[in-house]
């Protein structure tokens, strides 16, 4: 993974609450055996009508959302299935940040492992972001600050280990493999 420090982008807003991973990437696209190429199916059933045409009223089909890398989402985003295809699809489409008041556990973990940055903000900031689609924001992973217009920098939190891995482009599998001796010792002790 490449090191990540700062992401600056315009926002797109998907205000619905409890958006589950079946919406982010419907199950029929999970028959793939690779990680790439899922962006075309992101939010497939909300983006496209049955005949394959784009649904004009869906946010990602509107010209304003084009090129936005920060997605402002409703509470409990990413609930449901553990499919890592959900962050893969968001990243492949071009999103790098998701911002909400609450993000479901497994989705959040999966996102951090792939360099999709989850940012949790309070209700007031969230409301402001929902009401101001298309604003320029930046997310600094080093200082853990979210910068948005008309506000002082807003501190947010990312688990320290995940932050360290993101900043240094460290693969967590490598970290685990370094502890091989401790794992051997554990197995010997508990067997």
């Amino acid at each position: 993974m490449k090191p990540l420090t700062r992401i600056s982008s315009r926002t797109a807003v998907l205000a619905l609450t409890d958006v589950d991973t079946d919406q982010i990437i419907p199950a029929r696209y999970l028959t793939t055996t690779v990680r790439q190429g899922l962006g075309q199916h992101l939010f497939a059933d909300w983006r496209y009508a049955a005949d394959g045409s784009a649904k004009a009223d869906f946010v990602l089909n509107q010209p304003d959302a084009e090129g936005a890398a920060a997605l402002i989402v409703g509470r409990n985003f990413g609930c449901g299935s553990s499919r890592e295809h959900a962050p893969w699809a968001l990243l492949d489409y071009g999103f790098e940040v998701v911002i909400s008041t609450e993000i479901a556990d497994i989705f959040l973990n999966n996102s951090l492992k792939n360099g999709l940055i989850p940012v949790i903000v309070d209700e007031e900031i969230h409301r402001w972001l929902l009401d101001h689609p298309g604003v320029e924001i930046s997310v600094d992973i080093d200082t853990l600050e979210l910068v948005i217009p008309e506000h002082d920098p807003i501190p947010f939190n990312i688990d320290r280990f995940s932050r360290y891995c993101l900043l240094n482009g460290i693969d967590q599998l490598g970290f685990l493999l370094q502890h091989d001796a401790a794992i051997d010792e554990y197995e010997a002790r508990t067997r």
Binding site: R83, E84, N109, K113, Q172
Partner: peptide, 9 residues
């Protein structure tokens, strides 16, 4: 439940 990266772990 875990994600696929964790399955590899």
């Amino acid at each position: 439940g875990i994600g696929t990266t964790e399955v590899a772990h």
